[in-house]
Design a protein around this nucleic acid. Sequence first.
DNA 1: GTCTATAACGTGATAGAC
DNA 2: GTCTATCACGTTATAGAC
Lengths: 209, 209
Amino acid sequence: MPTKKVNPKKDKNAETKIKDAARSVFHKKGFAATRTRDIAEEAGINLALLNYYFRSKEKLFQIIMKETMMQFMHSMVSNFNDTETTLNRKIELIADAYIDLMIAEPEIPLFILSEIRANINDFFDSMPLGKVLLNSTLVKQYKEAQAQGVIADLKPIQFIMNLMGLIVFPFVAAPMLKKIGDIEKEDYEKLMLQRKTLIPIWIESILQP
Amino acid sequence: MPTKKVNPKKDKNAETKIKDAARSVFHKKGFAATRTRDIAEEAGINLALLNYYFRSKEKLFQIIMKETMMQFMHSMVSNFNDTETTLNRKIELIADAYIDLMIAEPEIPLFILSEIRANINDFFDSMPLGKVLLNSTLVKQYKEAQAQGVIADLKPIQFIMNLMGLIVFPFVAAPMLKKIGDIEKEDYEKLMLQRKTLIPIWIESILQP
DNA sequence: GTCTATAACGTGATAGAC
DNA sequence: GTCTATCACGTTATAGAC
């Protein structure tokens, strides 16, 4: 059995190189602004190989889009439906997981929002996200807490908007906010890490009855 | 002196029709995904007229982008720098103005965020938004309140992220949130109107020391 | 599997008649 | 000012040699 190579870049075959490059370029520029030549160049392969392996730009994009959505939704769905954790703890875990993900891949949220708008039905047809969130354990616990009167009377969807807005918006608007605040990348990440602990506190104070 | 026509669509000349169509299509699809033929069709004019009046797609886009940024920044800068209003009142006015604007033109926030990312330096070079917000009256009042210990110790930029996130995110993510919550356009607008009064309350409770 | 060369197509832009 | 016809170019995709 051959030992795994140490350098992860060196032992990648052409197909993997193309996919990785495609992910990077699509995430940064979106479908329409991306040229297949950009991807080939970034991957360091011949342009014809892209079509050889993936048939078309469209098909390659669909693969990347699907994987990216899955990656983004996965921790959401699993965190939202954990039956072992309290409401407050879930909020901590969600903030933690998403901020880590977006520090690692800051292009993802704006990519998803832009491409979903361009192609709204394609994705929701193939993944019935529809009722998943509103039937989640998190929302059940939220409604229960409301019935007990321990949190404010606020629609679940408003609560989710607040939670996601506080978590995601600073990443979606990062280029603008960095300019406004004259903040370097490393300092911006520190601000985001602070928000991991602050957001659960803020959400709690918002929900005070 | 000729009386103004009643129907605003009928008396528009070709140049105005093109600009209005361009704004609409660019806002919806962004620069890269927009074809000049889309604009011409939407405007109901001949494709050649677009170049006759605006020279190029690029030039036309720059005009739209500049106007849109101005529209979006205008109420921000003026509200942020009003010396007659208290901090709490400013937050109310900002939420009110922005939610009204985005109900009227829901495509604007995602358009701006996407195109700024694609073209980050072009815009901030021509409009020195840099220090405008952090030197604003609002931020001065915010710091003053902190010095007096009446609000929590939280960096101004974090405060602005929260405020903007709570206001803007539901519009940026509207297509996704509508699907998740199974919400129609009119009901979604009602939720947004509720947030006008809720956001100032939430911000206040977040800032509780 | 990988390359070069080129076909096929879409899009931005213009020439020139009216 | 407005139109038709067309050019010029960039981009996606493929044929065919190796």
